[in-house]
């Protein structure tokens, strides 16, 4: 365990050094991050428009803004910690250089997961906090302490879910090699998470809750924060996350057994 923590801090330092090396990139990254967060909020303003528009049934503007806050936060996790690593593994698989990772005396899943971070995306935490403050001032009350605690628990489970989805997608890359656009697919499906899941018809809501559990990542934490998530849903989503993570790990081990290196 201590060894892995040491490895993690090494990997983080490498990412920081890499970011500092390409200074021009670092600046561009910052601007891009801010731009992305702005575009994450625009659609909500269009849906609610002026006061005459009915908006999303069952969600006031402030409440929907809480969901957007969670979306920005998790998009930060996705772009900052998940997607860069995903791209790295896909490159490894295509070029056959994954061998070098597999040969190292540490768990391969751990090594590829921590290989690359976009440290700039930490800013999305700050932006999400600002969005939460604005949202709750619109709602007209502060969130209860216990509700915030519940939503933090859900943040951990949402991160784990996102990571498990990532592992599943990487595993797919072992079977279909020309998959440059997998990260793109991931991001664009994740885009649906910016809306409260209740707007989707039953079939889609089922998919977003149980198959690609986007609802568990943004809508559930938002509802917990607003104090209207039932405790059975909280427990259920935690158990579901654990099952999902176990499936992802199992699939990864299967997929890595399938890997034949270059020319295989």
């Amino acid at each position: 365990m201590g060894r892995y923590l040491g490895l993690l801090s090494r990997q983080l330092r490498t990412s920081a050094l890499l970011a500092a090396q390409y200074r021009w990139d670092f600046v561009v990254d910052g601007v891009v991050s801010l731009f992305f967060m702005a575009t994450a909020i625009v659609p909500l303003f269009v849906v609610y428009g002026d006061a005459s528009r009915p908006g999303i049934p069952g969600w006031s503007f402030g409440e929907a803004l809480v969901v957007t806050g969670w979306f920005i936060l998790l998009q930060g996790v996705l772009d900052g910690a998940v997607n860069p690593g995903l791209q790295a593994v896909i490159d490894h698989i295509r070029k056959g250089t994954l061998d070098f990772v597999l040969l190292k005396p540490a768990d391969a899943q751990f090594l590829v997961s921590t290989a690359r971070f976009q440290l700039w995306r930490v800013t999305s935490v700050v932006v999400a906090l600002v969005v939460f403050v604005i949202a709750f001032s619109r709602v007209g009350r502060a969130p209860a302490v216990l509700d915030v605690a519940a939503s933090l628990v859900l943040l951990v489970s949402a991160t784990l879910l996102l990571y498990s989805l990532w592992i599943l997608i990487v595993s797919a890359a072992f079977f279909v090699v020309k998959v440059d656009n997998l990260t793109y697919l991931f991001s664009s499906i994740f885009d649906a998470a910016r809306w409260p899941s209740s707007v989707f018809p039953n079939v889609l809501r089922f998919v977003f809750t149980f198959v690609v559990p986007l609802a568990l990542m943004t809508t559930f934490p938002a509802e917990a924060m607003l104090g209207r998530l039932e405790s059975s849903a909280l427990v259920g989503s935690l158990l579901g996350t654990l099952v999902f993570a176990a499936i992802a790990r199992w699939t990864w081990l299967k997929a890595i057994g399938h890997y034949t290196s270059a020319g295989g």
Binding site: V176, K178, V179, D180, N181, L182, Y184, L185, S188, I189, D191, A192
Partner: peptide, 12 residues
């Protein structure tokens, strides 16, 4: 397969 993945990513 790649194209199908792409089509899925344009279902927005």
């Amino acid at each position: 397969t790649e194209m199908i993945i792409w089509v899925f990513s344009t279902t927005m």
